[in-house]
């Protein structure tokens, strides 16, 4: 049954992604590999754009969007509930038994490794995203690559700007240059 499969897949995403919304990305790319009928590399890029430019936690927005694409309104709800279910279980256990969880040396040590690995996993997700956006059928799309470099420079200079600014600017440039999909 599709709803059960959705719940199970997003339960796994919620259980293993640690450290913010983008940390769910590598799991979503893996999911796209296993279930291309659910998600494609391109829909993930659109999903990030929509999730970054709407209110709410990015990880939750992405789960709702992905679930909706797979199985409609109810699919979006089920995927989101699947993603938050591990949180509820784990937090209740920690709040009950481990009051000083974040100060535990073992947890601190684990995070020393975990943070670096999460940066690596999100880099993997970025490479997937870049290859879908900047490569067209194996060769480099120079226009897109040039635009990407300009955007990176802008984002680095205007660090404080909200992601929504960049997404709107991207949309405007896409319309002005009539970028092909």
């Amino acid at each position: 049954m599709i709803y059960l499969a959705l719940f199970y897949e997003f339960f796994k995403v919620g259980l293993f992604s640690i450290g913010g919304g983008l940390a769910t990305l590598p799991f979503l790319y893996k999911l796209a590999e296993r279930r291309p009928d659910w998600l494609t590399v391109q829909t993930i890029a659109d999903m990030i754009a929509i999730s970054e430019s709407t209110p709410g936690p990015i990880g939750i927005n992405m789960a709702t969007y992905a679930g909706y694409q797979v199985a409609g309104v109810f699919g979006g709800i089920i995927a989101t509930l699947g993603e938050v279910a591990p949180s509820i279980i784990i937090i209740v256990i920690i709040a009950k038994f481990l009051a000083e969880f974040d100060k535990n040396p073992l947890v601190k040590h684990a995070f020393y490794g975990l943070r670096a690995a999460v940066a690596g996993l999100i880099t993997f997700a970025l490479l997937k995203l870049l290859s879908a956006t900047l490569l067209a059928g194996g060769s480099i799309n120079y226009l897109n690559t040039g635009l990407y470099l300009v955007f990176v420079a802008l984002v680095l200079v205007f660090k404080k700007a909200h992601p929504l600014v960049w997404i709107l600017l991207g949309a405007a440039i896409g319309l002005i240059l009539r970028l092909p999909s």
């Binding site: 890029a45 999460v118 999909s181």
Partner: peptide, 22 residues
């Protein structure tokens, strides 16, 4: 479709920024 083609490039940049920060 044109708008989203542009948006995808912007998203690549915002994710790049997040990774640099991380």
């Amino acid at each position: 479709q044109q708008a989203f083609s542009g948006i995808r490039i912007a998203v690549c940049a915002t994710v790049t920024m997040s990774i640099i920060r991380l």
